[in-house]
């Protein structure tokens, strides 16, 4: 797969599986799962540093920013103001000018507030951020995000952490046809076949967290996801056969007795 790199805003990525760092038992498990996944893009949340207990270790002691592309996200932000503030803080921390922009619309579904997302993306793009927006599986919104300057879009497969897989494959296919930038399916993957399917449809990458961190054996699932994304990508590039209602013999008739 070395010849099949993913390029976003002039940056090249080796892996088409991107992973989150939440919900793991500890940092050792986080590190092992990320290694097993083969991911080179790792998303992290932006939060207050614990000033009362300094004995606690830091995530970046385990995930080396020199080895991985750290993708700060605005998880937990419900307003444009918060999403912009968190993005600016993330950039000021000096790790990255990339941001996985989330403006969450509702606590129960964690669906994106797409109107707020577009507004926040406009502000941040003007400030020079590379905005990767977590968006709904809505082709019109995806197109608007690209039109205002997002170098990739990240539509959800299903609600964050739901494990439901791709709920609207037809919309995803329309997004893939509509936008001419990389499409990263973000959130809702449950198991390896979901990831493979996203890649077979032509998604450029898949980002997931809970599907790996919440598995009984996260490290084994991370490895499964690596194979799934690679297999799906190869199948997409190879070009699948068309579906037909009736059988077509794969052995020749000639030479039969």
């Amino acid at each position: 797969m070395a010849d099949d790199r993913l390029t976003i805003a002039g940056r090249e990525f080796r892996s088409r599986l991107w992973v989150g760092t939440g919900k793991y038992k500890d940092f050792v498990e986080t590190k092992k799962a990320i290694e097993a996944s083969g991911a080179d893009v790792v998303t992290v949340a932006v939060r207050r540093v614990n000033i009362t207990d300094r004995s606690k270790e830091n995530l970046l002691d385990y995930i080396d920013p020199k080895k991985y592309t750290i993708l700060p996200n605005t998880a937990g932000c419900y307003t444009v103001e918060d999403a912009v503030r968190y993005s600016r803080l993330a950039r000021a921390a000096g790790i990255s000018d990339l941001v996985k922009l989330e403006v969450i619309g509702d606590e129960k579904t964690l669906f994106p507030d797409t109107a707020g997302l577009i507004e926040a993306a406009k502000i941040l793009i003007k400030e020079g951020f590379i905005v990767l927006p977590y968006t709904n599986d809505d082709p019109i919104v995806a197109k608007k995000l690209v039109d205002i300057g997002c170098p990739a879009v990240m539509p959800l497969a299903a609600p964050i952490g739901s494990g439901l897989g791709i709920r609207n494959p037809y919309n995803l296919k329309i997004i893939l046809e509509t936008v001419k930038v990389p499409v990263i399916v973000d959130a809702g993957v449950g198991t390896a076949s979901d990831a493979a399917l996203a890649m077979e449809y032509g998604a450029d990458a898949v980002l997931m967290n809970t599907a790996i961190a919440g598995a009984k054996d996260p490290i084994m699932m991370a490895e499964a996801m690596k194979y799934a994304v690679d297999a799906g990508r190869l199948a997409y590039r190879a070009g699948r056969i068309p579906r037909k209602l009736y059988a077509t013999a794969s052995s020749p008739i000639e030479g039969m007795l």
């Binding site: 998303t43 949340a45 939060r47 918060d82 969450i104």
Partner: peptide, 21 residues
């Protein structure tokens, strides 16, 4: 003063400014 760093996270976590290590 707000001192901000990075924490493990994928997406969508609620709550505002929970503290980190």
């Amino acid at each position: 003063v707000e001192i901000i760093g990075f924490i493990g996270g994928g997406a969508g976590q609620g709550g505002s400014w929970p503290t980190i290590g």
